[in-house]
Design a protein around this nucleic acid. Structure first.
Lengths: 233, 233
DNA sequence: GTAAATTTGTGTTATAAAACATATAAATCC
DNA sequence: GGATTTATATGTTTTATAACACAAATTTAC
């Protein structure tokens, strides 16, 4: 179990964006109802069709939101990094989860019951506006994703995915190596293609000197060209 | 111009869900800043990349939200019926529109500046929760649409689209004819396929006695089987 | 009311991507 | 630390769907 002082630091520092919207009294309520949990690599946080009950705040690690479709096919819908919130959409929609969440790597999550969050929203409009803003941006992203996944060819979709990873998780110290360690299968699930085609297309990108690959480490070498490929499908 | 009494009826009756969330004072503010506009068939209401300024409330007619992609391909993202609200997502996200809206048929829209709406949201949590709920349901729908459009085959996607039209706009008096008059091209844009393939697949469905077609009038004859086709791709 | 434009319908061809097959490499497990 | 599972890699075949082509029907415009 984490120390109380450490907990307060996490709440104070890391929940920043949401935290700042709160009154002292509301902060106390959140602090009292807050706990955190560690998740192992690939551990499921919640699964499709379950009833949403908590707001999750990713404090450390990386999380994927994904949905199982036809056969064994899986689509990764969104990626989360510290400090981002998830798990609230289904609760607000008053429906079971339509997607699942899992840790990409060992992660630490802050957990707050949605009931508490909802009570505070009913009194605090800044918090309400925070969620309105988050949901609105997510919905715009989903609409754009629909076009990317349905209209672009394999090369465009994979280029898009690599740039998304760069935007989301950034680069290592060298300014080029993606700061995420991801299987080819996950990469395929992110870009709506089979694992074979993700591997094959990655190989093409290497031979075209757009990227460099060392196992799961991917270095972006020619980002402008990758953007061009992403843009024109 | 519409008569004042008529305007009040429209506001009072048709804006119901949103209207009920308001205090008398807020109702007055909305009424003072409300106007309505008629749109012709296929007329654009707003276009991608424009700056969002208004909340639109569809009072009469049908509206499609669509996004242009690669080449001339268009994807219909969402459909609206009276009384539904749209146009607010991009404003809340603080970004230009990522999609366009157009009338499917002659339509009447209620228009309220988002600035006014936002001011009221800052004071009225019920209104905030209304938008949180709407956005959350839309986002869940978009996530599900991603799976439908990327993983199902043509037949599954078209069956899905026909059922969506039934759910959204319902049936004529006969309880079977879709209450929407839509071109094959729109049907194709809704189900992510070429117009040729929409026509062809529609023909297959007719010969399988799942539907009956008379020009743009579509009768759903075997809904359970259509659901099966939609479900299994 | 007739000409022009658009939409619908259908056949044929081309192609992108999945499916399948199999080998090698790497990671995980007793 | 050797065995077993899992992930990566690549070649081949199959298939779903787009692209193309054109005729007929319908709608729109003047």
């Amino acid at each position: 179990m984490i120390k109380k002082s450490s907990l307060e630091r996490i709440i104070g520092d890391d929940l920043a964006e949401l935290w700042n919207a709160l009154t002292p009294d509301e902060k106390r309520i959140i602090a009292e109802n807050f706990h955190y949990e560690r998740y192992k690599k690939n551990q499921i946080i919640y699964a499709e069709s379950e009833t949403p009950e908590n707001l999750y705040c990713l404090l450390e690690g990386k999380v994927k939101l994904f949905k199982s479709g036809i056969g064994d096919r899986v689509q990764i819908l969104r990626l989360y990094r510290p400090v981002q919130y998830f798990g609230y959409r289904a609760y607000f929609a008053r429906e079971p989860y339509v997607s699942s969440a899992a840790a990409f790597e060992p992660s630490v999550l802050g957990i707050i019951p949605m009931k508490i969050v909802e009570e505070i929203i009913r009194k605090n409009n800044n918090l309400a506006l925070f969620f309105i803003h988050e949901l609105s941006r997510n919905l715009g992203g989903a609409d754009t994703k629909i076009i990317n996944l349905t209209q672009k060819h394999i090369r465009g979709r994979l280029a898009e995915a690599l740039l998304l990873l760069a935007d989301n998780y950034g680069y290592e110290g060298d300014g080029a190596t993606l700061k995420i360690y991801m299987s080819r299968e996950d990469l395929a699930n992110l870009s709506n293609m089979t694992t074979s085609n993700a591997i094959r297309t990655l190989t093409s990108f290497v031979s075209e000197k757009l990227i460099l690959v060392d196992g799961r480490r991917i270095r972006i070498v020619n980002e402008p060209q990758l953007r061009k490929i992403s843009k024109f499908g």
